[in-house]
Structure formats: C-alpha cells, structure tokens
Amino acid sequence: MARNLLFWVGIVLLVGACLFPILWMLNLSLKPNELAQAVPPAFFFEPTFEHYPTAWRSANLGPLLLNSVIVAVGSTILVLLVSVPAAYSFARYETSRGHLLFMILSTRMMPAAAIVVPYYLIFRQFGLLNTHMGVILAHAFFNFSFCTFVLYGFFKEIDPNIEYSAMIDGYSRPQIFRKIIFPLLKPPIAVVTSFSLMFSWNEFLFAFVLTRTDASRTVTAGIEQFWTMTGIQWGPMSAAALIAIAPMLVFSIYLQKYIVRGLTFGAVKR
C-alpha cells in the first residue's frame, strides 16, 4: 500500500514538473500586463483574454503559422522520400552498415550553433536565404539520420523471408511492396512523421538565422518579436507561444496510438 502511494506521489511530481512551464505560460497569457512580473507571483487575478487577439495581430501569426506548416510538411515529405528507401536498403542489402551508424552520430555530433554560420554562408550563395526551401532543407538534413535509423530498426524486424515467400507465391517486387510491406509501415511512418514534424515545428535557431522576412519565417522564430526594445511583452508572447504549440499538441494526441505502437515495435513478440 505504502509502496503504491509512493509510486503515485512520484508520478504526480514528475508530471507536475513536466507540465509546469506550460501551465505557467497559460497563467501568463491570461494575466493582465501589470501583474506579469509581480513578485511574489499573483495566483489569483481576473483572467483576461486580450493578449490573444493582440498577439495574433501584432505578430502577424496567421502567415507565420502557414509558413510553419509549409516548412514542417515540406521537410517531412522530403525526409520520408529519402529515409524510407535508404533504411530499406540498409536493412536488406546491408549497405554499409557501420557507416550508417557513423553517419547518424556525425550529424548529431555537431552542436547546431557551430554549423549555423556555414549554413548561412552556403545558403546565401545558393540564394536560399529567406525562402521556404532553405528552411526545409536545413530541417530535413537534421531529420534524415534519425528517421533513417528508426526505420532501419523497423525494417530489420521484418522477416526477409516474407518477401521471398511472396515472390515464391508469384508476386513482383512492386506488388509485394504495395501489398505486404507498405501496410506494415504505417506505425513506423507515423513515428517518423510526427518526430520530423515536431522537430521542424519547434526548431528555432536555423529558422531564425536563415529567414529575415515574415514571408518565410516560421512561427517559432516569429515569437522573438515580442522581445522588444522596450522590454518583453510577457502576456502576448505567452499567448502566441500557446497558439504556436497548439497544432502540435492536437496532432500528437491524434497520432498517439500509432506512435506508441511504432516505438514499441519489436519489444513485444508478434
């Protein structure tokens, strides 16, 4: 009994710690401006919704959100187009096994801040600054390795004899991919898609450095505007931040079933 109680207390503390920043943001977004910085923090106040319309208008959130959607979806599609066949070939044909691991490490070894300047310079040469394509490419580069790795593990789990068996049964490779392999791919593709989308949606540094105009800037980078010469506008910034994370929240809840299945694939004997 006591052990049980301890377990739940632990859970509540952990969940609290995770949720606290979000709750605090919610709190700030509903607080009148004059109370935002009050010490000690004011817990009881008349909530106000004025920050939301303010944030939406002043930061031009609509177009920024659209940019985020374009960049996230674009980079994710690109990642899938490359990662699925790459992972398949790594898994089936043992294409440079050790090198794959190194590739993954190598792209993750460098701190983003260290490569952002070279990126900037290269992208300027190619005229990719302030374009959707620029951010899409940058985000895709970061996601390739991770997504390929996840998919590689998944493909390794599929018994190669299944494909041979289908060939013996008289099916061609494209037919086998369509009828057998693709239906099996749903959970891992859901995982990879959501990770890629979330990364791209939340990424700040590259989006910030590679775009200077509202026409190409993503919403995460856009929130920076509330950091003004006259001080930080806590209320509107929190409201904007909440608006910005809302789509991802809804999306992950929707895909939760697939994500859990994809992540635990192979852990449970099928």
Partner: peptide, 13 residues
C-alpha cells in the same frame, strides 16, 4: 515452386 519457411514468414497484417 511452393515453400514453407521454418520461421513461418506469414504476412502479419
């Protein structure tokens, strides 16, 4: 030819 594999190789879905 027809073949039965030792590890079954059934189509899981």
């Amino acid at each position: 030819v027809a073949m039965a594999f030792e590890n079954y190789s059934l189509y899981p879905q």
